[in-house]
């Protein structure tokens, strides 16, 4: 399973790279890719800084590096890419890689849900939005706003604080996953203990969808009966 995912992830990455190279000039895509690789490196180094597992590399671990690195790379693509559609494709990559992470920490069901919902529905929604707002045609020269340096500082600061936090908690050191829950358990919990929240969640979805339709619907021009229209 893990190996399969690794292969799949590698394929997806290569596909993404090809897409990027095929549609845009080298200069505009190389820079983010460089940053992306750098980030992967940073991630690997940071991970080992806290866990001392550099000596115990084994298959799932390696696959996790690959999948996690790709997820990070996708995330960087989303926020750094210079083309809207590329960003969307990078997002899909990240979402799928996240599913891989779920599988790796033995939450298979969530991984499947992630692929179905995010990889399928949400990404298609976003691509539709790009299409409907004619993003490509009206795309501005700069995709970043004027405050991007401040954003970089903020994001970087947040990341630093969070990572330092993770390193500080002793109780989390040396924990590895052993047992995991099956789909049966989740189903029982969802329809038994959490039946009411589940129903409410479905209600929230329905309301959100109705609201989305109402908001997005085109303006209605009041139609007048033929006779009245003539009188005007």
């Amino acid at each position: 399973m893990e190996v399969l995912f690794g292969v799949f992830a590698a394929l997806a990455f290569i596909a993404a790279l090809r897409l990027v190279f095929a549609t845009n000039s080298v200069q505009t895509t190389l820079a983010p890719l460089l940053v992306l690789l750098l980030a992967g490196l940073v991630f690997v180094v940071l991970s080992h800084e806290f866990t001392d597992t550099i000596s115990s590399l084994h298959a799932p671990q390696v696959v996790f590096y690959m999948v996690g690195g790709l997820a990070l790379a996708g995330g960087m693509g989303v926020v750094f890419a210079n083309d809207l559609v590329h960003a969307a494709l990078f997002l899909i990559m990240t979402l799928l890689m996240t599913a891989g992470v779920f599988v790796l920490v033995s939450a298979e069901f969530l991984g499947l849900v992630q692929i179905l919902l995010y990889g399928g529905a949400v990404s298609i929604l976003i691509i539709f939005a790009l299409m409907l707002t004619r993003a490509r045609e009206t795309q501005a020269l700069r995709l970043n706003g004027p405050q991007w340096p401040f954003a970089l500082v903020t994001g970087g600061g947040l990341g630093a604080v969070l990572i330092l936090m993770v390193g500080r908690v002793d109780a989390w050191k040396g924990l590895t996953d052993t047992t995991y829950k099956t789909i049966n358990d989740i189903g029982n919990a969802l329809f038994d203990t959490y039946a009411l929240p589940f129903e409410i969640a479905s209600l929230v979805l329905i309301v959100a969808l109705v609201g989305a339709i109402v908001i997005a619907r085109a303006e209605e021009t009041p139609e007048l009966p033929a006779g009245q229209a003539e009188q005007r």
Binding site: G145, Q147, F150, T154, L158, V161, R168
Partner: peptide, 25 residues
Amino acid sequence: IPNYALAIAGGVVVLAIIAFTTQGV
């Protein structure tokens, strides 16, 4: 909106840093 969002996020970060340095968790 981006300016306001930046202010909010920046505030959160500053608070987090303060908490991190003073509380030590």
